[in-house]
Simulated assay, not measured.
Amino acid sequence: MDLAIVILNWNGKSWLEKFLPNVLLYSGEASVYVIDNASTDDSVFFLKENFPQVKIINNKENHGFAGGYNEGLKKIDSDLYCLLNSDVEVTENWLTPVFSLFKNNPKIAALQPKILDYNRRTHFEFAGAGGGFLDNLGFPYCRGRVFENIEADSGQYDDEREIFWASGCCFFVRSKDFWEQNGFDARFFAHQEEIDLCWRLKNTGKKIFYTSKSTVYHVGGGTLNKQSPTKTFLNMRNNLLMLLKNLPLQTLLWVLPTRMILDGFAGIYFGYKNGFAHFIAVLRAHGAFYARILGTLKLRGKVQIEKYFETKWLVFKNFL
């Protein structure tokens, strides 16, 4: 089983300079690629001068995370992809347990390692933590992180188990399964495209896994800061699109109206907490969702699994 480690770059020279050496040091025989999303800094020149062993794929424009990977991965022939954020520090032997799971479990389509915070190394990191799930209303959360509440890593998630979604910051996926689903939904641009892909994979009977035997450290916010209104817009819009595309009809009929109401309250709260631009971002997200309803309905699969969530309610107080 051959592996391609693929880093998507957009004006990220400083991250590549800091974290790429460890990727090369600890990744054995894996091939390392950088897909450049039409950077305007000197990232590509820097790579050519300092890391000639890294293969570079140049996208003609910035397609975002989803489209950027879709375009670049078309040019990479490998059994297994590792889609790795440029602001991730990998560790020694991080690939060994990953190979083991994929080799011994043919139904596993995608998986993630344990993801800890690079700047607070005793704690989980926001984007993925100990494996991703959805609550009853389709809000994503992770073991080790619920909304803004981050847990310290005390070994409570030292296991290997099935999860609902694997984090895009360090996302292992079989190339065959990736392309059978036509890759990411490029309309998402960035945020939650990996959850949507994992959901589609699960709808076909595939499994998504987490292993604590592999650990990486993620800085987070390297391309788009958590406080950005654009991030609020993308998360809100994409989550609604994902629900419309993947929920069973009988569940969709009550979840979507409920979410519309809760999103209104969330918009007011985000505006109060983070500034008026975030309130506007929620309104824009709903407008963009309405404009894409017909197109999204055409993408609904033939099968939607009924038990898509954990039996856990995340109430509105978790926003506070």
Rank of each mutant, 00 (worst) to 15 (best):
Phe276Tyr: 15
Lys213Pro: 01
Thr223Arg: 04
Phe265Glu: 13
Gly287Arg: 12
Tyr272Ala: 10
Leu283Phe: 08
Thr211Tyr: 02
Lys231Pro: 03
Leu243Asp: 01
Leu244Ser: 03
Gly264Gln: 15
Leu234Tyr: 08
Gly220Lys: 00
Ser214Glu: 11
Gly264Asn: 15
Gly264His: 15
Leu249Glu: 15
Lys226Val: 14
Phe276Ala: 10
Leu247Ala: 05
Met260Arg: 07
Pro248Arg: 04
Ser214Leu: 07
Asn225Pro: 02
Gly267Lys: 03
Trp254Val: 01
Asn235Glu: 13
Leu252Cys: 05
Gln250Val: 12
Tyr272Leu: 12
Lys213Ile: 00
Met236Ile: 13
Leu240Trp: 03
Gly264Asp: 13
His278Val: 04
Gly264Cys: 13
His278Thr: 03
Phe270Ile: 02
Leu283Gly: 05
Pro229Met: 12
Leu241Met: 07
Trp254Ala: 02
Val219Tyr: 14
Asn239Ser: 15
Met236Asp: 07
Ala281His: 08
Val255Gly: 01
Leu262Phe: 12
Phe265Arg: 10
Phe289Gln: 04
Tyr269Asp: 11
Pro248Phe: 02
Thr232Lys: 03
Lys226Ala: 15
Thr215Ile: 14
Pro248Lys: 05
Leu262His: 09
Ile280Met: 06
His286Ala: 08
Leu249Lys: 14
Met260Ile: 06
Gly221Asn: 07
Ala281Gly: 09
Pro257Ile: 10
Ile268Asp: 13
Tyr272Gly: 03
Ser228Arg: 04
Met236His: 06
Val255Phe: 10
Ser228Ile: 05
Thr223Ala: 10
Gly271Tyr: 06
Pro257Arg: 08
Phe279Trp: 10
Lys245Asp: 11
Met236Phe: 10
Pro257Lys: 10
Gln227Asn: 15
Asn274Asp: 11
Phe265His: 09
Phe270Ala: 06
Leu240His: 03
Pro229Ser: 08
Gly221Thr: 05
His286Asp: 06
Met242Pro: 00
Thr211Ala: 06
Val219Leu: 15
His278Gln: 08
Leu241Cys: 03
Pro229Tyr: 11
Thr232Cys: 10
Val255Asp: 07
Lys273Pro: 10
Met236Asn: 08
Ser214Phe: 01
Val216Ile: 15
Tyr272Ser: 07
Ala266Leu: 09
Ala288Cys: 08
Phe289Pro: 01
Gly221Phe: 08
Thr211Asp: 01
Gly287Met: 12
Leu224Val: 14
Trp254Arg: 06
Leu224Tyr: 09
His218Ala: 04
Ala277Trp: 00
Thr232Tyr: 07
Tyr210Met: 02
Thr258Cys: 12
Leu234Met: 13
Arg259Asn: 09
Asp263Gly: 03
Arg237Asp: 02
Lys273Gly: 13
Lys213Ala: 00
Leu243Glu: 00
Lys213Phe: 00
Gly222Ile: 03
Gly222Met: 06
Pro257Cys: 12
Leu244Gln: 03
Asn225Thr: 08
Asn274Tyr: 14
Lys273Val: 11
Met242Val: 00
Asn235Tyr: 10
Tyr272Ile: 02
Arg259Trp: 13
Arg237Met: 06
Asn225Lys: 14
Ala266Ile: 01
Gly275Pro: 04
Asn239Gly: 15
Phe270Leu: 14
Trp254Ser: 04
Asn246Gly: 13
Leu241Thr: 00
Met242Gln: 02
Lys245Ile: 01
Leu243His: 02
Gly267Asn: 05
Leu247Arg: 05
Tyr217Arg: 04
Ala288Met: 12
Ser228Phe: 09
Gly287Phe: 14
Gly220Ile: 01
Gly287Ala: 11
Val255Lys: 11
Ala288Arg: 06
Phe270Tyr: 15
Leu283Glu: 05
Gly271Asn: 03
Met260Lys: 09
Phe279Val: 02
Asp263Asn: 09
